[in-house]
């Protein structure tokens, strides 16, 4: 983890309405989203967002519709301007950029993938993929070579001269991803990139993204409303509700220790055995324990249950590669499968 976060949001507020700054004062005095709308006809988009996004990590922002997640991602490249707060990218305040600098920033430092693909219908697949380079004014040859390289990489060889409308949704989004990759930026913004795809293709695309990420190590900001997707992709998970961050941190930690009934609701429906990893429930190595076998700390609990044949009296040694890092008591594993229920829910 680098010392300086790649993207840093500090005290970000966004209020939609005619006089956002005035409404901001009320919000800072504690007025809620619904009261603000009822009394002042302003919509509270984001309130007091503090998020650090580390270089080379996938930061997933999750929340239900209307929670402000799409608004949040559009602040990073200033498609939406905040009412108050700072947006720092590599330590540089994006709010201080003038129009031209902002354009250069969007061209060279960030690329974006959209929920509805947003491809240019009158351009071919390869022209779409080369869009960022064309905007920057690269030569035709460079545009084509780069675009073809990334189209191959996302599995679209042979489709370069098709038009987007001739492709299926999954393939169109591959073009969208190729377009973002061709831009060759450190930061990739993905706004519900896989939400419009059917479940099987979505899984394919998630695997593709993880595979690319291993190789490319980009800073990815991923927006989703799907917790399974969030848990699969996230290095850092940010959960939004009504425009405020409810909880953020390592996804396994959030799953095991939700700090809000809202998040408990969220996590109650998912398949914990598949999502939770051995490393999240393992304990310290105790002397004298008898191990039934060795497992990797990145294995999920589902595979552990299969391995132990459902017996709860076994203890496994946990390895990270070849190094011993802990031990896993199957009893702990079973306990972790039951969602923690807070008192507030009754």
């Amino acid at each position: 983890m680098s010392s300086q976060p790649k993207v840093r949001l500090r005290g970000l507020f966004k209020i939609f309405g005619s006089d956002g700054l005035a409404a901001l004062e009320y919000v800072k005095q504690g007025l809620g989203k619904e009261d603000l709308l009822a009394q002042y006809q302003h919509v509270l988009g984001l309130q007091n967002i503090d998020v650090d996004m580390q270089a080379g990590e996938i930061t997933v922002v999750m929340g239900l519709s209307g929670s402000g997640k799409s608004t949040l991602i559009r602040h990073l490249n200033r498609l939406i301007d905040p009412t108050a707060g700072e947006i720092l990218i590599d330590g540089e305040d994006v709010m201080k950029l003038n129009e031209d600098e902002l354009r250069v920033m969007r061209q060279t430092r960030m690329s974006m993938v959209f929920q509805k693909f947003a491809l240019l219908p009158h351009r071919t697949v390869v022209q779409n993929a080369a869009m960022a380079l064309k905007v920057r004014g690269e030569s035709e040859a460079v545009q084509n070579a780069e675009a073809m390289k990334w189209l191959d990489r996302v599995g679209l060889q042979g489709y370069e001269n098709h038009y987007p409308a001739q492709l299926s949704g999954g393939m169109q989004q591959r073009v969208g991803i190729a377009r973002a990759l061709t831009a060759n930026t450190d930061i990739m913004l993905m706004d519900e990139a896989f939400s419009a795809l059917d479940p099987l293709i979505r899984t394919d695309m998630q695997d593709l993204l993880l595979e690319l990420q291993q190789e490319l190590n980009k800073t990815i900001v991923f927006i989703t409303h799907d917790l399974d997707e969030a848990l699969k992709l996230a290095d850092h998970l940010v959960i939004l509700k009504d425009g405020a961050v409810v909880q953020q941190g390592e996804p396994q930690g959030i799953l095991l220790n939700p700090n809000d009934p809202y998040i408990e609701d969220f996590v109650s429906d998912i398949n914990r055995a598949r999502v939770l990893k051995v490393r999240s429930v393992m304990g310290k190595v105790k002397k004298g324990a008898k191990y039934a076998g060795d497992v990797q700390m990145s294995d999920n609990l589902e595979s552990m249950i299969a391995l132990s044949n459902g017996e709860t009296n076994k203890i496994y040694r946990v390895l990270d590669g070849d190094k011993v890092v802990g031990q896993l008591d199957m009893l702990d594993l079973v306990r972790a499968l039951v969602p923690r229920v807070s008192g507030s829910k009754g």
């Binding site: 498609l79 947003a118 219908p121 920057r136 377009r179």
Partner: peptide
């Protein structure tokens, strides 16, 4: 959406 994409790519 297409206009937004055009803006996002500068």
């Amino acid at each position: 959406d297409v206009i937004e994409a055009a803006n996002a790519f500068g």
